[in-house]
Design a protein around this nucleic acid. Sequence first.
DNA 1: TGTTCATTTCTTGTATACAATTTCAAAATC
DNA 2: GATTTTGAAATTGTATACAAGAAATGAACA
Lengths: 217, 217
Amino acid sequence: MNQRRADSIASELEESILRGDYKDGDRLDETKLSVEFGVSRTPLREALQKLTLSGLIEHIPRRGVFVRQPGPVELMELFEMMAELEASCGRFAATRISEAALDELREANTVCQKAVENNEPDEYFKNNERFHRIIYRESGNRVLEQEAARLHQRLRPYRRVQLQVRGRLPESMNEHEQIVKVLSDGRPEQAANALRDHVAVQGDKFYHLLVNLKETG
Amino acid sequence: MNQRRADSIASELEESILRGDYKDGDRLDETKLSVEFGVSRTPLREALQKLTLSGLIEHIPRRGVFVRQPGPVELMELFEMMAELEASCGRFAATRISEAALDELREANTVCQKAVENNEPDEYFKNNERFHRIIYRESGNRVLEQEAARLHQRLRPYRRVQLQVRGRLPESMNEHEQIVKVLSDGRPEQAANALRDHVAVQGDKFYHLLVNLKETG
DNA sequence: TGTTCATTTCTTGTATACAATTTCAAAATC
DNA sequence: GATTTTGAAATTGTATACAAGAAATGAACA
C-alpha cells in the first residue's frame, strides 16, 4: 500500500471499516496508519476527518479517533430512516418519473430475476442497487437523491446479509414489480408505502438475523 | 480574531457563509483566511474540509475551495427534503411522543403566540425552532433527528425571510396547533401530512419572495 | 498493599518548510 | 493581430518539526 493520495486513503479506510476490519471502539493510530499508507500524517488526518463526517468514526479531541460500529439500535434507526427516504423518493418519482426510467427499472428487475434463478447473488445485489438508485434519481430532487444514495451506501454491508434469508429474494422481486406498477400508475401514496414497506422488511429481517446470531453464537 | 481553534473556525466560517458574506463561486483563500484567523494553514484546511462535507463549499483539487450558495432550484429541493424529513419525524412521533413532550410543544406554541402579539420576531423564531426540534427528538430515531436538525440549521437563514410575509405568522400558528392535535391523537398519517404541508408552505412562500425579488430588483 | 503524586513517554494539534501543479503574463511564432 | 509557448508567480498538497496535552510508569507515602 504505497503512496496513495488523501482522497483514496479515505475511501480505502471507509471500505476497510465497512468490511468490518475494525471493532467498535478500536482506536485508529495516526502514526501507524500513516506509515501503513506510506504518507505523512497530514493527508491521513484529512482522510480521518472525512470519515468522521460520514459517521464511521468518532473524533475525541486530544484523544484520537475511534471506529463507531453501529449497534442493533442504531442499525434499526438507520434502516428506519432509509425506509422513509425511499418512501419520499417514491412519492416524488410517482409524478416525475420518465417512461425511459420505467423501462430501466423493468430491465433491472428482469436481470435480478434471472440472477435469482441462476443463483448469482452478486449479480442480484448489483442490479438491486441499480433499481433503487434509479428511483432516487427519478425523485427529481438532487438533494434527496444524494442523501438517499449516501445512506444506501452506508447500509450496503448489512443489506448483503439479508440475501441469506430463505425465501426473501422471490418476495423482494414481487415487491419490486409492485413498486414499478404503482410508479407507472403515478400514485404517490402507494409508491411511498410500497417502498417504505419494502425497505422496512429488510430492516426487520436483518434485526431477526442479529437476534438469532446473538442467541446461537 | 485571534487564535481560535480549528473547530470554532469551522463554525465561524459556516456562520459567515450562511449570513451571506460570500457570493456563489467566491474562492476562499487559505493563506488569507489563515492570517485573518491568526492560525496556520493546517487547522484552517481542516475547517474548510468540514464545511465541504456539509455542502457549503466545494473543493476542487489543486484549484481551491469555492463557496456554493444554493440557487433557487437547490433551495426548493432543500425545502422539499425538509418537508419530507419533518413528515417522517411526525409520523414516528405520533406513536412515540410522551405527554411531557406534548406539553413542551404546547408551551412553545404559547410563547410563539405571545411573540406574535408583541411583535417580537426573534422570540417567535427561537421558539418556532424549539417546536420543531422537539418533534425531531420525539421521532425516537436519533439518526433521523440529527439529519433533520442539520437541514433545519442549513435552512435557517431562508426561513427567517419568511417572517416578513404578511399574515403568515398567525397562519403558521394555526398549523402548529393542528400539528399538536394530531400528534396527541396519535395519528401518524395526519401528523406526517400536517408537517409536510406546514414546511412545504414555507418553501413556497420563500420561492415567491425570491421571484418577486428578481422581478422588482 | 493500596493510593497519590511526579516524571516520563506517547499522541494529538499546530506551525513551518518544501514540492508539485496551476494560473497568469509576456514573448515568440505564424 | 491572433495564437502558441515558455517561464515566473501564486496556490494547493505533503512532509517534517515543534508544542501542548493525555496516558503510563514508577516512586513516595499512608
